[in-house]
Write a protein that binds this DNA or RNA. Sequence first.
RNA 1: GGUCUCGUAGCUCAGUUGGAUAGAGCAACAGCCUUCUAAGCUGUAGGUCUUUGGUUCGAAUCCAAACGGGAUCACCA
Length: 592
Amino acid sequence: MSITQQIKVAAQSAIFSLYQKTIAVDDILINETKPEFEGDFTLVTFSFTKLIGKKPDDIAQELGVELLKNDSLFSSFNVIKGFLNLSIQVSVYHEFLNNTWQNVQFGNHAHNGKKVMVEYSSPNTNKPLHFGHLRNIFLGYAMCELLKATGHEVIKANLINDRGIHICKSMIAWQLFANGATPESIGIKGDHLVGDYYVMFNDVFKSQVEDIINTKGITKEEAEKEASILLQAQEMLRKWEAGDADTMALWKRMNDWVYEGFYKSYARMGVDFDKMYYESSTYLLGRDIVLKGLEKGVLFKKEDGSVWIDLTDEGLDQKLLLRGDGTSVYMTQDIGTATLKYADFKMDSSVYVIGDEQNYHMQVLKLILQKLGEPCADGIYHLSYGMVELPTGRMKSREGTVVDADDMMDEMIAIAQKNTEELGKVDGFNEAELLKLYQTLGLGALKFYLLRVDPKKKMIFNPQESIDFHGFTAPFVQFTHARITSILSKAGEIGEANTPNYTLTSVEKNCLKLLEIYPSVLLQAAKEYNPAMVSNYVYQVAKEYNSFLVDHSILKADSEAAKHVRLKLSQLTKQVIAHGLKLLGIDSPDRM
RNA sequence: GGUCUCGUAGCUCAGUUGGAUAGAGCAACAGCCUUCUAAGCUGUAGGUCUUUGGUUCGAAUCCAAACGGGAUCACCA
């Protein structure tokens, strides 16, 4: 049980024995005592005044006396303006340290029997990944790791959007202009090659539209419908849906190029998936469920034969689920995929890592599934994140105004190399170790940068001001880890020793207090689907430790007891940093 | 226009179910490497928490309105 939890329980029973009133443990507020006051934790008494019928100061005073009877937990107290400041027995900290410093599982929670699927990445196969996708991927991966650490069984899923008009656009442009170029023949990654032709399609399309406007004098909207390259793409989509052999072969060939490129990128990012879903094999699903819903009267049909759901009671609109000709729309397909996922895994909940532009869509999806009585419905959670924007506005693959994911990773690794070489601290590294280090630092900085912000907030990234390696960054935290590793290796075996009489300094105590809450930080972060809480926490731990280190000698400590406690504290800090960073997909180097 | 969302230091962000004098990093300025890794540490400066009203012992936090950004409201995906 955590220290704050112990305090709450003690306070609850103290209140009962003093006033014969029962207060829920969760209604007792425990804060860390502000540094300007004496004490470790503060109990706020204002909320009890009504129930107990006394002044805050009196309650705090009486409660303090009562709590102090439990002398294994508390050592002293003081009362200031209704705040009861409690000091904790040093033995509590020693006990915590002794119990955890060798526990590599510290932070992990026992299995809770819950199974959860997290769908993330979910790329389109017509263009390479860009910076915005990185936020999705890192967020999804971190969320999976966080859920695992807090006791869930996790299925990492990826739904690949591998069909549709956008794919045909790349295909037709390649067919028209590539002269048979392949990733091998011109030596670029397959996803980039395909993406280049997607951009080319749009360039050609634009100029065709302009030509038509100039020659025929019609509106832009009309001209867009006449552009020959778009007509060709649409024709290709029809052929694809009809299963035309040549079209399917080209589609498969180009998609394979893209997959090869994606897998390379995923491998470098260090992310993986347990289950791939392909839209080409799920896009027809959902129709039967919709028809069943029609029979049940949950849905209704309009005169033209189209099928709708009426969500006006929920304050939303009517939503189309089947066109007049009986074909599916995007929503239909998502209904089908949701039920397919559930049929495959019977998970308790299903997390969708998708940008906030789809908030409405996801809200509607969940509502429809609930109305249809599908068992997967209630478990759906949309982990919505804000877009990554450039100072010039949103990134658009179509217009080529993106920061490419592969380029970004290359650049970060190059910066890591440059910084490392300038610092000149890598004597004795061989070539392979150096490459590994640059990758660990560069990708770490990138991941941390994207994961340190609350997911639901949009973020602006300025490529000109490249990502920093100082301050609130992964390299800073990684540096702390490397420092500790170095100290510990010089210290040798820590061994067993009893140090109950060692008086902790205030900085040491702060470090321990911070480390002690790690498991509850993870629980909170998982509950709120917010890996940024882990980033912030890990940074705090590193910061606090560095402050400690600068004025506490470890190897040359004043006493053996001090040395012993500080080594254990260092070991535990190292573990928590490595564990926390790992949840974010970031490695911790032993040297840097 | 409807719905949702955001507004905290020059910039990027924290701020745990309402709690004491609102915190970090970057940028700026001033210091600290004969001693465990200076990718570090310490200090200075920087704030009407967009505004107004409300709820109460107490509001950056909850409610309402206004202002300002963003998203969305397709027989596109």
